[in-house]
């Protein structure tokens, strides 16, 4: 090992067909086919078309996945884009992540811009500046983001939501048509509490909603709404109690 030398080589790794690598510090890592990486990886880029398993941590500046990727440890990256199936055994840290398909994160999600579509399971919570969801999510922890936008498709559950602007909407357009074949339950979000500055909800069931400007659209069931500046309610929604505070 050359240690701290600035000329430290980062060899490129290419796996075509079926193959494996020990991992380590590498440059471009390309997998086409089936790849098995038996250790922690620090890569400049990670590109996988096919299946890959990382038995350890994965750190990469950019990740491009089409297919299936399992990372046993945490996944850390600047820019992540994935289509297919992604399973992360630890935390997911990313500047910008755009993931669609089936996603399971056993830890926490931390990032700036997180965009998920499809079917998502998160064991921890999520902290981000921008969180966008199209599909469904099951999150055991708290979702905390400046900007939260959810378009519901199927049933979602989140423990708590907090942030600046929070918009929960049922999906429309093509997604609504696809919904006819949907077996994952109703389009709705079930959550203990939602707190934010501007809150707009549709098809949401919550015990509490607290915020400055609160708009409860159609299809909601809310236990208690506490608002500061304004409050609107769709007549089809059920709200047990609402108060102006502050």
């Amino acid at each position: 090992m050359e240690g701290k030398s600035t000329l430290q080589e980062r060899p490129d790794v290419k796996i075509v067909g079926t193959g494996g690598s020990a991992g380590g510090i590498v440059g471009k890592l390309n997998i086409t086919g089936d790849g098995e990486l038996n250790g922690d990886i620090d890569a400049l880029s990670f590109k996988c078309t096919g299946n890959a398993v990382v038995f350890g941590k994965l750190k990469t500046e950019s990740l491009k996945l089409t297919g299936e990727l399992i990372v046993q440890g945490p996944l850390q990256g600047e820019k992540l884009s994935a289509i297919g199936k992604l399973h992360v055994g630890g935390d997911l840290d990313a500047q910008a992540a755009k993931i669609s398909g089936e996603i399971r994160i056993d830890g926490q999600i931390n990032g700036e811009q997180i965009e998920l579509s499809g079917y998502n399971t998160v064991r921890g919570g999520c902290q981000a500046e921008k969180f966008k969801l199209h599909g469904s999510v099951h999150m055991d922890g708290m979702l905390n983001a400046e900007n939260i936008e959810m378009r519901l498709f199927g049933e979602s559950r989140v423990k708590e939501i907090g942030g600046g602007q929070i918009r929960i909407k049922r999906s429309g357009g093509v997604w609504a048509v696809l919904g006819m074949f949907n077996t994952g339950g109703l389009k709705r979000l079930i959550v203990d509490s939602i707190e934010g500055d501007v809150i707009e909800l549709e098809n949401t069931e919550a015990e509490f909603v607290r915020g400055s400007k609160v708009t409860i659209g159609p299809g909601c069931r809310i236990g208690l709404v506490e608002y500061i500046d304004s409050f609107h309610q769709d007549p089809t929604s059920k709200i047990e109690q609402y108060n102006q505070i502050g």
Binding site: E146, G162, E195, D197, G211
Partner: peptide, 20 residues
């Protein structure tokens, strides 16, 4: 939390931002 926001005049958004 409610008393805190009332007393300090900060918003939910600020509180969550600071927590993040």
């Amino acid at each position: 939390k409610k008393e805190l926001l009332d007393l300090t005049g900060i918003s939910y958004g600020q509180l969550y931002r600071w927590k993040r």
